[in-house]
């Protein structure tokens, strides 16, 4: 009711259009989500030129693919390698690449994750079931209102013959936050 009250006041003053609110809810509930990000990752795995462009200037590439964007926000894609595993957090609130991943899960917004991802990333990863080789360094990226990060996970072995659709099905939301790895092909 506190939200309804604000909405009513702002609508009566002409500051808010209720139809636009419905449109925003529909977009985030039904049209954007981790499958957008998975599509980007699958293409990066399959097409070296696309991967290069994505790592250089993700905003243009994502806009060309027609994914819903928001003004004033930049997406930076960080690539996992055998040497470096990337992991994303927002220590301030919950900044997140909405156009590619949708609304963040509850744990991403929790104090526990926001505080511990920076302090003890390996332990947090272990709780997500991710154990990395000792030689792999973990790099934690702190998102802000201006810059949001997307992890480009490593392509799983045994996927050489897969097409884009099959590849994108291996890409989980958590693998693009860095708290998970892509699924292995059966």
């Amino acid at each position: 009711m506190r939200v309804k009250a604000l909405e009513t006041i702002l609508t009566r003053k002409g500051l808010v259009d209720p139809a636009a609110l419905d449109e925003i809810i529909d977009t985030y509930q039904n049209r954007i989500g981790p499958k957008n990000g998975a599509e980007v990752v699958a293409r990066a795995w399959s097409d070296p030129a696309f991967r290069g462009a994505l790592l250089r200037d993700a905003d243009s590439v994502i806009a060309e693919m027609g994914h819903y964007g928001r003004q004033g926000e930049h997406v930076v894609v960080v690539e996992n390698t055998p040497e470096i595993h990337n992991m994303v957090v927002c220590t301030l609130c919950s900044c997140y690449p909405w156009p590619l991943l949708g609304i963040p899960p509850g744990w991403y917004k929790s104090d526990a994750y926001r505080a511990r991802a920076v302090r003890e990333p390996r332990r947090v990863l272990a709780e997500f079931g991710v154990t990395l080789p000792e030689a792999t360094a973990v790099r934690v990226w702190d998102s802000t209102a201006e810059v949001r990060y997307l992890v480009l996970p490593m392509r799983p072995e045994g996927t050489e013959s897969m097409d884009l659709t099959q590849l994108s099905e291996l890409v989980t939301r958590d693998s693009m936050i860095g708290t998970g790895l892509p699924k292995s092909p059966r």
């Binding site: 604000l6 636009a20 809810i25 509930q29 509850g106 744990w107 994750y113 997500f128 958590d174 708290t179």
Partner: peptide
């Protein structure tokens, strides 16, 4: 901490509040 799929918004008022805020940002307010 779970990796199970979740709905975008757990409660309708979360969605309304989110939309109201994004709309105010979209319209430059």
């Amino acid at each position: 901490m779970t990796t199970a799929p979740e709905p975008a918004f757990l409660e309708p008022w979360h969605a309304q509040l989110f939309a109201l805020t994004v709309h105010l940002n979209d319209s430059g307010r």
